[in-house]
Design a protein around this nucleic acid. Structure first.
Lengths: 190, 190
DNA sequence: TCAAAAGTAGACCGACTTGTCTACATACAC
DNA sequence: GTGTATGTAGACAAGTCGGTCTACTTTTGA
């Protein structure tokens, strides 16, 4: 693992756990046992390091999410999606780390300006997540010829996913009610 | 308006617009034209001021939300809820200010520790919101004798509400797709 | 009328912030 | 072997942070 990767890994864990503004450069240096000069050799600023962390998380999360969504039938995509989320909330997906909400929603909350590179990267991530769901749905026999319907279903699933993540985060996993199979069947039926 | 109310109003606007860590005491003082001593006469610390802002937002938001949910039929509760959200997102609800996501979700993102007073207040708000939806549903003739079903519907509506708010916030109101009437009918039917 | 309460202005404190820079050590390619 | 790149350690700059405090002014109520 290169120094650069090591720094990003450490920073990502700290940022995701404690928040962007709450973690200072010095804390990242102490945790990663790296000299300040080294960090600033690889990243021009804290913002740039944050962007690298967002990019890393994007790759990490999407890879897991694609696996979860890769099911042959639309209803199975939906069921697998929420089963996957439930595992994530319960810290049973090692590659995603300890659940602390959506890193991108959290980051966007700290950077409200839509023009900021961090905010843009958060938008991009959400767009990608929608695409992953949509692609999975379009690969099913029942939806491959109905792009409009598939997009509508993808949006609904995405909205529920985001809602559950927020609730799990704010309520610290208490009182979380997952959508019923009945509801998912209705959503995914053509 | 007392000095205390004036400080809370100014601070709430700044905190909601820019984030909790991003706004310093000095910015609040400059914006409100109040002396530092006066602020610290009314609030022991920044955290205490933040808590006062959360409390104010809670009152403000709940009053609007109760109005929105106060409909005679379950399907109307659902339709009114999402129509209300759409207005909020479009900055057409003056008493809620310019839309910048859910203040409590944003705040919780900056204070990950569940034991922190700020995090607790965010949890409490979400609990209250669920109660408001549930109460509205239980007041309808079709659900007043079915608490279990009403609670399930309330949870589903709440999840979708949270999801939409997050999407609207992160995507800055682009590509937002509201749930269809068909879906809402299915969710609210007994 | 006059004292107490509540306000203003802003200097000041110590700790912390991001980021730069110097001085030195290590590792590796030619 | 030697030069270049990359690393370490950490002092330092310049500014911000939350919070305290003094000195003075205004408001208010008995």
């Amino acid at each position: 693992m290169t120094k650069q990767e090591h720094i990003v890994n450490t920073a990502l864990t700290l940022f995701y756990t404690k928040g962007l503004h709450a973690v200072g450069i010095n804390e990242i240096l102490a945790e990663s046992n790296v000299a300040k000069k080294t960090l600033y050799n690889h990243f021009a600023s804290k913002d740039e390091l944050i962007c690298a962390c967002l990019a890393k998380r994007d790759t990490q999360f999407n890879s897991w999410f694609e696996e979860v969504c890769n099911k042959p039938l639309a209803i199975e995509v939906a069921i697998s999606l929420f089963a996957g989320l439930k595992l994530w909330f319960a810290n049973q997906v090692p590659k995603l780390g300890n659940f602390n909400g959506c890193f991108f929603i959290n980051a966007a909350a700290e950077y409200p300006n839509a023009q900021h590179p961090i905010a843009k990267q958060c938008m991009q991530h959400k767009q990608t997540i929608l695409d992953i769901i949509l692609t999975a749905l379009l690969a099913t026999p029942e939806l491959k010829n109905n792009k409009v319907k598939a997009l509508e279903i993808a949006h609904t699933l995405l909205t529920i996913k985001e809602g559950l993540i927020c609730q799990a985060r704010v309520m610290h996993n208490q009182f979380l009610v997952m959508p019923s199979i009945t509801l998912l069947k209705h959503i995914t039926q053509s």
